[in-house]
Amino acid sequence: TVKFKYKGEEKQVDISKIKKVWRVGKMISFTYDEGGGKTGRGAVSEKDAPKELLQ
C-alpha cells in the first residue's frame, strides 16, 4: 500500500493498482486504477516511497 496526499487529502492505494511510475526530481509520481475506468494520480517523496514502487 502506498500512502500519499493529493490536493490536501490523505489517500492510499494498493501497489497492485499502480499502472505507471516515474521520477520527478526527489518525488516519485504515479498513476493508478481508481476503478470505474478512472485513472488517479499521486506522488510521494523518494524517502517515503515503498521499495516496490522504486523497482
Score class of each variant (00 low, 15 high):
A43Y: 14
L53A: 01
M27W: 14
Q12H: 12
G40S: 08
R23W: 11
W22Q: 05
K3R: 13
S45P: 14
S29C: 13
K3H: 09
K7V: 03
E46K: 09
T31Q: 08
L54M: 07
E34I: 15
K26N: 15
L53V: 04
G36Q: 11
Y6L: 07
S16Q: 11
T1F: 15
D14K: 08
Y32I: 02
E46Q: 10
V24R: 10
V44M: 11
K19C: 09
K51I: 15
D14E: 13
E10T: 11
Q12D: 07
A49M: 05
E52M: 09
E46S: 09
F4M: 03
S29G: 11
I28D: 00
A49T: 03
S16G: 10
I28W: 04
K5C: 10
K3D: 05
L54V: 10
F4G: 01
E10Q: 12
Y6K: 06
K11H: 09
L54S: 06
K51M: 13
K5Q: 12
K3E: 05
K5F: 15
Q12C: 10
E52Y: 12
K11L: 11
R41E: 10
G40M: 09
K17C: 09
D33A: 06
K3F: 14
A43C: 13
L53R: 01
Y32T: 01
S45R: 15
V44S: 02
S45A: 14
G35L: 06
W22R: 05
R23V: 08
G35T: 06
F30N: 00
D14V: 07
K38I: 12
D48A: 10
G25S: 04
D33W: 08
E9L: 08
D48P: 01
Y6R: 06
E10A: 09
V44F: 03
K47Y: 11
V21R: 03
K5W: 15
G36S: 11
V2C: 03
K3M: 09
G8C: 05
P50S: 06
R41Q: 10
F4V: 03
K26A: 14
D14A: 13
E9H: 11
K51C: 07
Y6H: 10
K3P: 03
I28Y: 06
G8K: 04
S29Q: 15
L53F: 06
I18C: 02
G36W: 08
I15H: 03
K38V: 12
S29K: 15
R41D: 03
P50H: 04
K51P: 14
V24I: 14
G42C: 02
K17V: 09
T39S: 08
K38L: 10
P50K: 02
V21M: 06
A43W: 15
K3C: 09
E52K: 08
E46I: 15
V21W: 11
I15Y: 06
K3W: 09
L53Q: 01
T1D: 05
D48Q: 10
K51F: 14
K38Y: 08
G42E: 01
S45F: 13
V21A: 10
E46W: 12
A49W: 09
L53H: 01
K7C: 11
G42H: 02
F4I: 05
I28H: 01
K17F: 09
I18T: 02
D33K: 04
R23T: 04
G25H: 05
E34T: 10
V24A: 11
L53P: 00
A49Q: 02
K17N: 10
K19I: 15
Q55T: 12
K7A: 08
E52F: 14
K5M: 15
I18L: 07
Q55G: 08
E34F: 09
W22P: 00
K20G: 07
I15L: 13
E10F: 15
G40Q: 08
F30E: 00
T31I: 15
D33F: 04
T31H: 05
E9Q: 14
K5N: 13
A43E: 14
V24F: 09
S45Y: 14
G25M: 03
K51H: 12
D14R: 07
